[in-house]
Design a protein around this nucleic acid. Structure first.
Lengths: 187, 187
DNA sequence: GCCGAAGTAGACAGACTTGTCTACATTAAT
DNA sequence: ATTAATGTAGACAAGTCTGTCTACTTCGGC
């Protein structure tokens, strides 16, 4: 098990997976435009040829990054909700853990909107798909009613707001409490 | 009154003002990183020397852009609230008009967080100052109580959420309705 | 008119960016 | 062993980016 001092990702997987894993990390932590392909290449331990064999352009890697993040988040969100009791309250410990995470830097989708929303329309499309799917999942936590679709979207809206507030204010607990209040007041 | 076909801003003001005006327009519409200094220079009708005389770096222009946008928005927000009756409901027509505006591209501060939050900490600081000031103004619309500070922050949170949802979903009326519901349910 | 402030026209520099390509080596499947 | 798939090592190219600088002109204040 190599734990090299260099920032080279240990090579447990295919080159493609390593690139995607490295991109996921750096894109989220440091920003998409702040991360050049040479950095990705160096840190994933592949060559330029290999990089471009798997991803025809940086933008296609960005799209893949967002798509895979979307899939992964949906999966883990659903799983965690189930583990937390499957009601709307199950959302809060998930969000709490995330907000307190040292790696928290807001929502990758929202950040991408700001970074690339005007130059890469796929980013807007994927963000929309992601948020709508999340709202669908939230809707299933709610008692069925005529309003449940809108209630779920309102909750999604409040979660997005709490994400933003945590990001600029650095006060996760306060944002979480506000989120809880809003969600409860919608019930 | 020159209305030249070229995209050169007519020269009503000092070079500095022209630069700032052009930056405000392009940074918001197209993105900060998507706008290079050469573009700013060409469209504001100044030379490189003049540009750098007024702004020692692109980043300092970005900071100035956000600071002046902050001041301007506070001013116009306060004014519009007063014109709309000075209650919390006064927020809605303001937000509605903005969301329906052809120029709407989300919140410049939130977009900047995504674009530059990791590389220019001033962006985070200004965004925080802006949002807190907005919340202070919102608080003044509310009946005084122990909770009014938190209520104002909850409303600010919901506004941010509505901004994001409008941005990715392109459904301003729906987001606005959700915002209204949340604000009312907090009262 | 004089002089400093402000501005013009661009050339230039170095770094960074994304992407193309050659020659060769290694791995995996048959 | 053979062959295709996959990967390595880099060099290279063109464009873009931010910022520095020279020489000269125009504007504004006294």
């Amino acid at each position: 098990m190599k734990t090299s001092k260099a920032k080279i990702v240990s090579k447990p997987k295919s080159a493609r997976d390593r690139i995607l894993l490295t991109a996921s990390d750096l894109f989220y932590r440091e920003g998409i435009r702040a991360t050049g392909v040479d950095r990705l290449i160096a840190e994933s331990g592949v060559t330029k040829t290999t990089f471009y064999r798997h991803f025809p352009s940086k933008n296609s890697l960005v799209v893949e990054f967002l798509e895979s993040r979307h899939q992964e988040l949906i999966r883990s969100f659903e799983s965690a909700l189930e583990n937390n009791g499957g009601t709307v309250n199950a959302i809060f410990p998930i969000v709490e853990e995330w907000f307190h995470s040292k790696r928290f830097r807001g929502c990758a989708f929202i950040n991408s909107l700001g970074e690339l929303g005007t130059v890469l329309p796929e980013v807007v499309r994927i963000t929309q798909a992601h948020k709508r799917k999340m709202a669908d999942i939230i809707e299933k936590l709610l008692p069925p009613s005529e309003q449940s679709k809108q209630n779920a979207m309102a909750i999604m809206l409040a979660i997005d707001g709490a994400i933003i507030q945590t990001q600029y204010d650095g006060t996760p607990d306060n944002a979480l409490n506000l989120l809880k209040r809003i969600v409860k007041s919608l019930s």
